[in-house]
Amino acid sequence: MNQTVRKLRFLEYWRIGEQESWFTDMAAEGLHLKKVGPFFAHFDKGEPKQMKYRLEVGVNKKITPEQVQMYKENGWDYVTTVHVFHVFSSPIERNAPELPIDTDTQSLGLGKLGKKLAIDCSIVAVALIITISLLYYIGFDDGTPTLYLVKGMVFQQSILTIYVGYLTYTTLQATKSIRALRNNLIEGKSIVHYTPWKKRHRLNSILNTLLITVVGLGSIVPIVQLIKSDTQTLPEESSTLPIVRLADVEQNPALIREEPTYIRDNVEWENKYTYDWSPFAPVQYDTDENGLIPVETWENGNNEYSPSLHTNVYQLTVPALADNLVNDLVSRYLYEVRDEQIVEINHPQFDRLIVYEEENRKRVFASKDKAVMYVRYHGHADRKLLLDNIAKKMHLISE
């Protein structure tokens, strides 16, 4: 049994002369064309031979036995079909005459292919508009594109948009090229059978490899995100998690955790942490913590003091995203607050620090190197103590 060798093929199948030259050069290396698939050309490995290849335009994808026999009698062996292009081969020593050109038949075949490509082009163009619209809606509609990018919510949609955009471009190119080929045929312009192919084939191979890699990554990322994502009950004792803890902020030994009111999947949702991953933020935490100090009350004196803390933590792979991420977090969580109520502070322990305070509520947005943190605190503790704890925890992931 002959060994089959697969090589990334020309996606631009309408470049007849270049493909004929490619098949001829492969045969000289001992690789003889067997068939052409969607992405690869299949060759049987054998003895090197001097061969000629020709691509003839047919009306249909299938060639009749009578046509195969007619070409064989003229010294040409049928090999395979690519779209409406029938591929024939002939050894040099056979000295076979050039295939006769049936202008009417080839024009009809190219016309049918051109109409199909025009329809395909319209379909993929509509698909591109839809994917771009979805990408805009997911990542840009609420004005927080960096946040969505970091959380990995637009990664797959971006990859899909790139793929559909590339597909739209290649389909449009195919439509225009088939129309030009048909016009040249009608005008009697002959095809140059020996055309340099290596430069274009190398470029196509690089582009296709990149496209396959990007699409492959786009398929793997959501699987990795699903595997890595985890939600657990937040432990009461202090831990090495890079999150601010309520006990460290309150600094009161009377702080306790109330009996949980909502437990699902063995998780106490009033006191939980969620870990997530994305290519742009491989470390992400989303936490909620609620406590009770029975010996204290709120200012009204009627209710027991029950402080709470919510934290979002991001460790970025690209530190340059930090500023935009801070801005997006402010837009997301302070969208109802007037700009003059939001204070940006120069602080030696942070690259950026934005604070919003209202009665017993404090919201802090901070960045340091590749670490970004958002903290929402409800309680009596002063701002300095809260900031000191934020700086301490951010140090764990900022380097």
Rank of each mutant, 00 (worst) to 15 (best):
E258P: 01
K116G: 08
Q341A: 15
L160Q: 06
I130W: 05
K7T: 06
N204C: 09
G152S: 12
V372K: 00
A174K: 01
W269Q: 07
V375F: 02
N2Y: 15
T80M: 08
T144Q: 00
N327V: 02
K61L: 12
D141V: 05
L329Q: 02
T170K: 07
G152R: 06
L387H: 04
L226F: 15
Q67F: 10
E270K: 12
I92R: 14
W277K: 02
D104V: 12
L353V: 04
G218W: 05
L113M: 13
T161N: 00
Y275M: 04
W14F: 10
T80K: 10
K112E: 10
K45C: 06
H310S: 14
N360E: 15
T213K: 06
I101M: 13
K392G: 07
Q225G: 07
I220Y: 06
G58R: 00
L31I: 03
D77L: 06
F85S: 01
E98H: 13
V59E: 09
L309P: 02
Q232H: 11
K115Y: 13
I138H: 04
L207V: 14
N2Q: 14
P196M: 08
P319D: 08
E47S: 09
M394N: 02
N252F: 05
H378Q: 08
L386K: 00
V372W: 01
D248R: 09
R200S: 13
Y305F: 13
L135R: 05
V150E: 00
I129Q: 00
L334A: 05
L207I: 12
D248I: 05
P100M: 10
G379E: 04
I16D: 02
S306R: 15
L33T: 02
E236N: 10
M394A: 11
K151Y: 06
L8C: 03
Y136P: 01
M153R: 15
D369R: 11
Q50D: 12
H201W: 14
V375G: 00
Q173R: 12
Y305D: 00
A180D: 12
T297P: 13
N2L: 12
E336Q: 14
V337M: 09
E258A: 12
E20Y: 05
N60H: 14
T240G: 10
G114E: 11
Y148A: 01
N300M: 11
L325G: 03
K49V: 08
E268D: 15
K45S: 08
V295F: 09
E47T: 08
L309W: 02
T168L: 06
